[in-house]
């Protein structure tokens, strides 16, 4: 059945004769068929030696997905008041590493973002943590993406370890607050407290 579906696409690609309009509509609606359509055209181009120098196969999709997954879409920060500007400066100062990433071209960031998101987004990063403290040394040119990545790799074991540690600490802090019956209700006595009092 799907075989015939692709044959339809094939014939459409080969000699684009206006068949049934409904067939065209079907192709447009079906993702599989649309992909096939794209692939056949690509093959055709390759055979006719009409390929462009660079092929960006599904980069658009990948980027769109990455953007969809990006956790920082909402940002209802008020107007950039003077305070905000001051804050921005402080943030820059306090995370030199992030600064480099920002300085790198937006497109570059996007591509890196795609790779990282695909690799390790899902469950591991409920909150992002701003780098402070240690600066990552030896970053020569903010534009040189490769160099930046190398620097990161050489620092990776300790940096990543520290990051995990901080992440775990922040999470544990929150967790402890939840089971800290005393902390959440100082005024009213919890059953545990009462039990203890009577025990004493």
């Amino acid at each position: 059945m799907s075989e015939s579906k692709f044959e339809t696409v094939s014939s459409l690609v080969d000699n684009y004769q206006a068949q049934d309009d409904s067939v065209l509509q079907d192709v447009l609606k079906d993702n599989d068929m649309a992909d096939t359509w794209q692939r056949y055209h690509l093959i055709g181009d390759a055979i006719r030696d009409e390929l462009p120098n660079e092929l960006d196969f599904d980069l658009t999709d990948a980027i769109a997905n990455a953007i969809a997954e990006e956790p920082t879409v909402l940002a209802p920060i008020a107007k950039p008041t003077i305070k905000e500007k001051i804050k921005a400066k402080v943030v820059q100062f306090s995370k030199p590493f992030g600064q480099v990433a920002i300085a790198a071209s937006a497109a570059g960031m996007m591509v890196i973002g795609v790779q990282q998101n695909v690799a390790s987004n899902d469950t591991q990063t409920p909150y992002q943590v701003a780098d402070t403290g240690r600066a990552v040394g030896g970053i020569a040119e903010p534009v040189s993406l490769n160099f930046q990545q190398n620097a990161r790799v050489s620092q990776e074991p300790t940096m990543a370890e520290q990051h995990r540690k901080f992440h775990a600490l922040l999470q544990d802090h929150k967790q402890q607050l939840k089971i800290s019956a005393l902390a959440t209700s100082e005024v009213t006595e919890t059953p545990i407290q009462e039990a203890e009092k009577s025990a004493k």
């Binding site: 306090s94 909150y127 701003a130 402070t132 520290q162 540690k165 901080f166 922040l170 802090h173």
Partner: peptide, 24 residues
């Protein structure tokens, strides 16, 4: 000592005389 900020929450970590101390 090394630290990160998550918003206003700090996580600070240091080792002194073989004892690791963290403050959050």
């Amino acid at each position: 000592a090394d630290f990160v900020f998550d918003g206003a929450t700090i996580a600070l970590n240091q080792v002194v005389n073989g004892i690791e101390v963290s403050v959050v």
